[in-house]
């Protein structure tokens, strides 16, 4: 159809002017600009950053901490003394929220980042070696997908036992490790299929025929071309990890008291939702802000990376990548 790359005579003059200044806009600058143009995404980013800051320095604004009991205010509604009220036992919810949000964000970030890294290495290795190696690694990956993660989490965190890791590790770290083990497979499969299709592209063949060593091809051609996918998967992975933490802690198999997280707070308050509603709704609201802001950011990032998203009509034509 119409040749969008066509240079029209009117623009040639302007272009000639620009050339003098070497204004070739950097790709990352374009992406940043597109992201910043997306109001929802920026709002998401602000909320997420605000929550992160709150979870790290919020503790300085209250004299209470998560284990200190205020005997004079048991089960108090939010007030100027206790910003979010207190629990049945007289523990300040604000202090617990600071700690819980931090734990949830940390778990999310660690799991999100590390799992994408693992997935990238695993996926690229499969695509790069192909053949038998690919087959065996794919089988292992599918077997892991088949394992009900839930039960393994439960086993790992409940294993009562002298010799088990439960004693050695705090429950949040244990949960982080288990979540990591079960979170990278989907991304790895996606990266594998993407790298495979890249490997068959002509520019990779061209590099091979030039005699460029394989290591360099992976580093210079493959990795930059799946970069956008990796960034998207980090935000997606962080969201999924935060959700998983809340889920498992909520039903009592994730993080265990005395450790605090959003999931623990929400789960612990279910029985008191009628009597002390703030104990339930405040951490639930925080969780929504957290996951919601990440989802908004993810949406903005996807649009920023998608080269076809700039045209209005084409924004809907986002093909799912072949997997």
């Amino acid at each position: 159809m119409t040749n969008l790359n066509a240079v029209d005579p009117a623009a040639v003059a302007e272009e000639a002017h620009l050339e003098g200044h070497e204004v070739v806009i950097n790709k990352s600058t374009i992406i940043l600009r597109r992201f910043l143009r997306n109001k929802t995404a920026v709002a998401g980013l602000i909320v997420f950053v605000a929550l992160t800051i709150f979870s790290f320095i919020g503790g300085f604004f209250t004299e209470w901490d998560k284990s200190k009991i205020d005997p004079f205010s048991i089960g108090m509604a939010p007030s100027s003394d206790h910003f979010f009220g207190t629990s049945q036992a007289g523990i300040d919810l604000y202090a617990q929220m600071v700690e819980g949000t931090r734990v949830s964000i940390l778990i999310g970030l660690v799991v999100g980042l590390v799992s994408v890294l693992v997935a990238a290495v695993y996926g690229c290795t499969m695509a790069y070696f192909g053949g038998k190696v690919d087959k065996v690694m794919l089988f292992f990956l599918e077997a892991l997908i088949m394992m009900p993660a839930l039960l393994v989490v439960a086993v790992a965190t409940n294993g009562g036992g002298g010799g088990s890791f439960k004693q050695a590790l705090p429950s949040w770290l244990l949960l982080t490790i288990v979540l990591l083990v079960f979170s990278w497979m989907g991304t790895a499969r996606l990266i594998r299929s993407m790298s495979m299709s890249l490997m068959s592209r002509d520019f990779v063949k061209a590099a091979q025929f030039m005699g460029v060593p394989a290591r360099r091809i992976v580093w210079r051609h493959l990795v930059p071309n799946i970069g956008s996918l990796l960034v998207l998967d980090i935000t997606r992975g962080v969201t999924a990890a935060i959700l998983a933490e809340v889920t498992f802690s909520f039903i009592g198999i994730g993080i265990k008291v005395p450790d605090v997280s959003l999931g623990v707070l929400i789960g612990g308050a279910t029985s008191q939702v009628q009597t002390y509603p703030w104990m339930f709704w405040v951490p639930l609201g925080a969780m929504f802000l957290l996951t919601g802001s990440l989802a908004m950011m993810n949406d903005g990032l996807r649009d920023a990376f998608d080269p076809s998203s700039s045209s209005v009509g084409k924004a809907k034509k986002k093909k799912k990548s072949t997997s």
């Binding site: 790709k27 592209r201 002509d202 520019f203 063949k205 061209a206 210079r220 051609h221 930059p224 071309n225």
Partner: peptide
Amino acid sequence: FQDPTGALDPR
């Protein structure tokens, strides 16, 4: 190569 677009790394 045949396809000049595919033969050049877009990045």
